[in-house]
Amino acid sequence: MIRSEILKEIAPILRDQLVVCNIGIPSQELHAIDDQPTNFYMLGTMGLASSIGLGLALAQDKTVISIDGDGSVLTNLCTLPTIANNVADNFILMIIDNGSYGSTGDQPTYTGKKTSLAGMARAAGCDNVVEVMDVDTGPALEKAIAERKMTVMVVKCDSGNAKMPVITMDPVVIKDRFMKAVSA
């Protein structure tokens, strides 16, 4: 499965949760598949989906799911020790690990070679790290939400992108409706 197929499958689960979605095609796909006020779309700032999600989870009680990418986690690897040492049990970091920089044309990342993000998350001190295959994403995500235990999920899937339109919504509008959904 490619990222967009996973997002289509888990959209009904994501709909009721606060979601911080990674820059580029991941946000475009989620926006096209199921736009919700509870979605915070990143339009830039590669790497910070996990940091924004953790800050949000630490600041309030609702469950927060950061949908991240392997390339983005690799560029902000210092996020893993911060997550490990500041446990927010309402936080789920779901890394769509397609082994590539999908948004920029599927150039390979090191996670498709020797590097394991699950291993790095464990070494950083994250207590609850699961690696799942694309077809198992839905049940694994539902379990993580139900457990209310901080979870790092690494979802292994194929590289590839769906053709979706660019998000033209103004960033301040994205933020404003998201903050209203957070405090609702």
Partner: peptide
């Protein structure tokens, strides 16, 4: 990374 944390906390 710190600014990302701050952005999330603000929205929270």
């Amino acid at each position: 990374e710190g600014m990302g944390l701050c952005a999330g906390a603000w929205m929270g």
